[in-house]
């Protein structure tokens, strides 16, 4: 599936990208395709380790929706943008589908939700499979159903609290 977010959602790195700007911008470091981690870099400069061992599927990032590049080929600015995006996506609530009749189908893959499927709720309350929506949000930070920009909705929720 090549979903680079799976490792992140399961092991929260505790870096909140929403709280304050005093945190230095995190850098992406590609270690292996399944073990991509966010680091809050304490030193300046690029913190690349040794090149990752050869693997067929490097995690791909999309600095713009039609561009796919591995982490090692991103500019620092793109890394920051993508790291922030990953951080914001992690702040969106997830759950497991409980059989609610209101949301029957994930409109991205057009497959009916099964009880127990991992789903993500956007601020507009549209619901998708985590895998389907995360891949899209990494390209475009909008709700596919209502086109609401997720970032502004998310930030206004935070400000309200």
């Amino acid at each position: 599936m090549g979903n680079c977010l799976q490792g992140l959602t399961s092991s929260n790195d505790g870096v909140s990208l929403l709280r304050g700007s005093e945190t230095p911008p995190p850098l992406l470091e590609s270690q292996s395709s399944s073990d991509l981690q966010l680091h809050a870099s304490s030193s300046s400069g690029m913190a690349f380790g040794p090149p990752p061992p050869y693997e067929e599927s490097m995690p791909m990032y999309h600095p713009t929706p039609n561009v796919s590049r591995p982490a090692s080929q991103l500019t620092e600015e793109e890394q920051v943008k993508i790291a922030k995006r990953i951080g914001l996506i992690q702040h969106l609530p997830t759950g497991t589908y409980d059989g609610c009749k209101k949301n029957r189908e994930c409109v991205i893959c057009m497959v009916e939700f099964m009880v127990g499927d991992a789903v993500r709720y956007l601020p507009c309350m549209h619901t998708y499979h985590v895998e389907c929506i995360d891949d899209w949000l990494m390209r475009s930070f909008t709700c596919p159903s209502c086109m609401e920009p997720v970032e502004s909705a998310l930030l206004s929720t935070y400000e309200a609290n």
Binding site: P65, V107, I108, W136, S140, T142, P144, S145, M147
Partner: peptide
Amino acid sequence: KACERWLPI
């Protein structure tokens, strides 16, 4: 506008 462009639905 972004809303007039491609969406995965």
